[in-house]
């Protein structure tokens, strides 16, 4: 309900300040689905972009409802309504290509964000390298167990780009520790409840031998923590890491139960919007402060083929600040 009121207020602001410019840019953001926390944070950050707040951009967010066909139809809608640019977070790396083609045919530049799409018609991409996060989280776990012992890997849905790339990163780190054995490796489909069941059963199958848990996202790492607690074991005897930096994980990092790597949804969303505006308007200078935060990520006139938003390890030092941003 709060969201509804907020967007009503936004529409109100957009209409009053539309006089600042003759006609606001119509930009659509097609995201794969709004039922999980990460894309919620991403979408809210987009609505808080200065260009949206001051009415220069008329933003529409399309909920893809986890369906590639729904997303494709939303691009057809944008094409019919003559949008100036689009931001695309596809559900599937291959199925998203057709949506990009539709937009391209209608002359709408498309900026990818967060998840990859296999299309050379994409104007640009603003996201984070999942191979790198997979490497970073595995390295944290392996360092904690001094590069020796047994670990388990809880994977995302097999075949999704994030699962493939994070696993590649996991394996890269594991290759540096030949004394580490991977006891089990299975999918829990990003789900906390599924990971909890899996970990409970693994703890039974490998009593007293699991030293580390590599969860390919935070939700699954949190499920593993609950399983360890339910088995009456001490979470501190395990090295556990996840990826994304969802709120529950930040709290668990604060409690010393796990490590997490923050995927900066705000930087991805606002960066993508700046690049999308630049594609629709000559000589645009970025308005979001994320370009100052990540000064290594050069603006390059908004014309680079891809922008790599860095990952931030969540530590005891920065966790309070990150939690404060979620209020």
């Amino acid at each position: 309900m709060k969201k509804l009121l907020a967007s009503a207020a936004l529409i109100g602001m957009a209409t009053t300040s539309a006089m600042a410019q003759d006609e606001p840019l119509k930009i659509g953001a097609a995201v794969y689905g709004l039922q999980a926390e990460f894309m919620q944070i991403w979408s809210e950050a987009l609505e808080e972009h200065p260009a949206v707040v001051d009415g220069m951009v008329d933003l529409t967010i399309f909920d893809g409802r986890y369906d590639a066909l729904v997303q494709q139809e939303q691009f057809e809608t944008m094409a019919t309504q003559g949008f100036d640019a689009a931001i695309f977070v596809p559900i599937d790396i291959e199925a998203g290509a057709e949506a990009v083609r539709i937009a391209n045919e209608a002359g709408i530049p498309v900026v990818g964000s967060n998840t990859q799409v296999n299309s050379d018609l994409l104007t640009s991409y603003v996201g984070s390298d999942d191979v790198q996060s997979g490497y970073m989280e595995a390295k944290i776990v392996l360092d904690a167990i001094s590069c020796a012992g047994n670990v388990v890997i809880i994977e995302g849905p097999i075949g999704q780009s994030a699962q493939i790339q994070r696993l590649e990163g996991n394996q890269k780190a594991l290759a540096e520790c030949p004394d580490v054995t991977v006891l089990e490796q299975q999918t829990a489909n990003w789900s906390r409840a599924e990971a909890q069941t899996l970990m409970e059963n693994w703890l039974t199958a490998h009593p007293d031998s699991i030293d580390g848990v590599i969860g390919q996202n935070d939700e699954m790492a949190l499920g593993a923590i609950e399983a360890i607690k339910a088995a009456g074991l001490d979470v501190n005897d395990f090295a556990i890491a996840g990826i994304d930096g969802v709120t529950d994980a930040l709290n668990a990092v604060k409690a010393g139960e796990m490590s997490s790597i923050l995927q900066d949804a705000r930087a991805q969303a606002q960066g993508a919007l700046d690049v999308a505006i630049a594609a629709a308007m000559d000589g645009y200078e970025p308005m979001s402060d994320i370009w100052q935060t990540y000064s290594d990520m050069g603006w390059e006139g908004g014309a680079a083929a891809s922008y790599n938003v860095p990952w931030t390890p969540v530590t005891a030092d920065n966790v309070d600040d990150l939690l404060a941003q979620r209020q």
Partner: peptide, 22 residues
Amino acid sequence: TLLYSDGRPVPALTDEFRWIGT
């Protein structure tokens, strides 16, 4: 469910509530 929770998890449950599960 999504409207009520704003699409976010409801965290930090009391120990008394968690007891029915743990």
